[in-house]
């Protein structure tokens, strides 16, 4: 694949109180891949995403998006945080949350107009949540809340999507709905980076994978590097996974 590099991470090191969470990560993510980041709990998967997005401050390293510093390329990047990171009893509606995806392009002070509302409604439609647009968000199921977060990222209309465990705690139908949307994004030439836990589904869902456990273990096409050797290196035990051909 001689494609453009969408995300380039150099020498990224993150530490909480002396203990490194991420150690000297170099990572190149080519444009147009649907990539899983896998690794055990505490491997720094979420931390990696959060440092790339500037939510956490790394002690060293740099991140560039299409060759320019992240700060200048924010509009190209969308983010789906972990569902548990917010209070779903917040007094607002599904549509309102999705509208927040348009706030970045609006900038300070400017109010959303009909144009932004239309975009938000379209995103809700894509994730199959249009009938729930006026629901208070606490009255949505876990899977529906996840879809709302996905819709909020879609409305950002970005080139690169970072998603932190979008499949966590969702039922089978939502999982299929989400993966279909991710595959559609890839088809449209977008780059999608997903923190993922279910190793069984990696070969089925993703075409690119990064093994992470504080250090980067391996990165590349799933068909080349998703093997027992790398799994064992990452998870530290003799890990066997049956890869469906």
């Amino acid at each position: 694949m001689s494609k453009k590099i969408a995300v380039q991470i150099d020498d990224l090191t993150v530490a909480y109180n002396y203990k490194p969470v991420l150690w000297d990560i170099d990572l190149e993510i080519p444009e147009g891949v649907l990539m899983a980041i896998v690794g055990p709990n505490g491997a720094g998967k979420s931390t990696l995403i959060k440092s790339v997005l500037g939510i956490l401050k790394p002690i060293a390293g740099s991140v560039s998006i299409y060759g320019k510093p992240y700060e200048k390329q924010r509009s190209l990047v969308a983010y789906v945080p972990q569902k548990g990171s917010v209070d779903w009893d917040f007094p607002t509606t599904a549509l309102d949350v999705v509208m927040m995806g348009t706030y970045g392009s609006l900038g300070w002070i400017k109010r959303p107009t009909q144009k932004e509302k239309k975009a938000a409604l379209e995103a809700l439609e894509k994730v199959g949540m249009l009938p729930f647009k006026n629901r208070q968000i606490s009255q949505l199921s876990g899977g529906q809340q996840q879809r709302i977060f996905l819709a909020r990222a879609l409305v950002q209309n970005a080139s690169i999507y970072f998603m932190d465990e979008p499949f966590q705690g969702v039922d089978a139908s939502t999982e299929i709905a989400i993966i279909n949307i991710l595959k559609a994004l890839r088809k449209a030439g977008k780059t999608v980076i997903v923190v993922h836990h279910d190793l069984q589904t990696v070969p089925e869902y993703f075409d690119w994978v990064t093994f992470l456990n504080v250090k980067k273990i391996a990165t590349g096409p799933v068909k080349d590097i998703f093997n027992d050797d790398n799994l064992t290196k990452t998870y530290g035990i003799n890990y066997k996974v049956s890869i469906q051909e």
Binding site: G54, Y79, M100, Y103, G104, I109, P112, R152
Partner: peptide, 22 residues
């Protein structure tokens, strides 16, 4: 009134607000 949108978003999801460049 001026910063309503920013206040609301920060209250709901401050990490996301940060990634949008606010």
């Amino acid at each position: 009134l001026l910063f309503w949108k920013e206040f609301k978003m920060l209250l709901f999801d401050s990490d996301f607000t940060k990634t949008l460049g606010f």
